[in-house]
Simulated scan of single mutants.
Amino acid sequence: MTLDVRAVVFDLDGTLFDHAGAAARAVDDLLGALGVAATDRLRAAWAEAEERHFERWRRGEVDFAEQRRARLVEVLPLAGLRPPQDPHELDLLFGRYLAAYRAAWRPFPGSAPLLRAVRDADRAVGVLTNGTEEQQRDKLAATGLSDLVDVVCTSERIGVAKPDRRAFERIADELGVPAAACLFVGDDPQRDVAGARAAGMRAVLVDPARDGDAAVRSSVLSACAGRRAPNGGDRP
């Protein structure tokens, strides 16, 4: 039996928060401080290294600091730079990147209005994100989204990560609604959409950076109301 949507759960990075934009600006800042002009190739190499080494952390293969150092060790030579061998020096260098990344934190322009619209429609709002508790909550606070979210589950706090169905079941439990009464909104077809559907949730695949805020809002609110979203993304 299909239940009415009682809660909407959002991914954070790439869905509500413009992680790719902030990361690209931080790479530009870091390389510029080292005397190298950033290029699309270097930005793409950083994004790929981030994805791969973050997943190693998520699987428990390295600790959080080690995955950060690994990005620098891999990408700096592509820019003609020699990475420091001392882990402490690598941490200091990553700290420079991190400061620039934080300074560039922005939500997508439509994120806050969308969360307000969901709450105005009498649905609870959750965020389920693969990341550390401190940084992901800091992102929500710094971008003004915290007060619009009822429950935040980070993979670090709950001990499981998307696409593991237990992560989706956990946030449904914390929201106090059945998984079948949740709509999940995310930008990753496997971690977000496939994972949510495996847990019994409905799901909408969105890409605010590509499609714009109006398209995301239409898809989400249509699915909340039980209508087929324009891209069909809400089908189970």
Rank of each mutant, 00 (worst) to 15 (best):
A22S: 15
A22E: 00
A23C: 11
A26I: 01
V27P: 00
D28V: 04
L30Q: 10
L30M: 08
L30T: 05
A33L: 07
A33E: 14
L34M: 14
G35N: 08
V36N: 10
R41L: 14
L42M: 05
A45L: 09
A45I: 11
W46I: 12
W46Q: 05
A47E: 15
E48Q: 14
A49Y: 04
E50W: 11
E51W: 12
R52C: 01
R52H: 13
F54G: 08
W57C: 02
R58Y: 03
R58D: 00
G60I: 08
G60R: 03
D63N: 11
D63K: 06
F64V: 15
R69P: 04
E74I: 05
L76P: 06
L76E: 05
L81T: 09
P83T: 05
P84W: 10
P84H: 08
P87A: 05
E89L: 14
D91Q: 10
D91Y: 02
L92P: 07
F94V: 00
R96F: 03
L98D: 06
A99F: 02
A99R: 15
Y101L: 00
R102Q: 15
A103Y: 11
A103R: 13
A104Y: 09
W105F: 14
W105E: 07
R106Q: 13
P107T: 09
P109Y: 12
G110H: 12
S111P: 06
L114N: 04
A117V: 12
D120W: 10
A121S: 14
D122F: 14
R123W: 13
V127S: 05
T129I: 09
